[in-house]
C-alpha cells in the first residue's frame, strides 16, 4: 500500500461565510469538503455576529497548487472584514484519484 503526499487545507471562519467559501472552493476545483462546528477565540476585534458565537471549520483535501489558489481567493475576498484563518498541513492519502476532477 503506497501513501501519496497531499495537502489538507483548513479554514476556520464565521458560519455565514461557509456557503460562499464552499462555492469558491468547488469552482476552483476542490472535489469535496468536511464542515464541522467549532468554537474558539482569535484576535479579530469583532464578534462573528452569530448566536451562539460558533465558527465553521472547513477541511479540504487538495494538491498544493489548488490549496494555494483557494487560500488566495479567500484572502482577496474575506480577510479584510471577516474573522477567518486558513492554513495548510501535510497529509498522506491512499487514493489520489479521489481528489481529482474528472
Amino acid at each position: 500500500m503506497k501513501l501519496i503526499n497531499f495537502k489538507l487545507l483548513t479554514i476556520i471562519c464565521e458560519p455565514v461565510l461557509s456557503s460562499s467559501i464552499l462555492t469558491i472552493s468547488q469552482d476552483l476545483g476542490a472535489t469535496g469538503f468536511t464542515v464541522t462546528e467549532v468554537n474558539g477565540q482569535g484576535n479579530f476585534d469583532k464578534s462573528s455576529g452569530e448566536i451562539p458565537d460558533l465558527k465553521s471549520k472547513i477541511e479540504i483535501v487538495a494538491e498544493q497548487h489548488l490549496a494555494l489558489k483557494i487560500m488566495k481567493a479567500l484572502a482577496d475576498n474575506f480577510f479584510k472584514n471577516y474573522s477567518l484563518i486558513t492554513y495548510v498541513s501535510d497529509i498522506s492519502i491512499l487514493r489520489p484519484e479521489k481528489f481529482e476532477r474528472v
Partner: peptide, 11 residues
C-alpha cells in the same frame, strides 16, 4: 437579522 447584516454590511 445578524447573519443577513454580516453578509451585506461586513464593516
Amino acid at each position: 437579522a445578524p447573519p443577513a447584516v454580516r453578509m451585506t454590511l461586513p464593516e
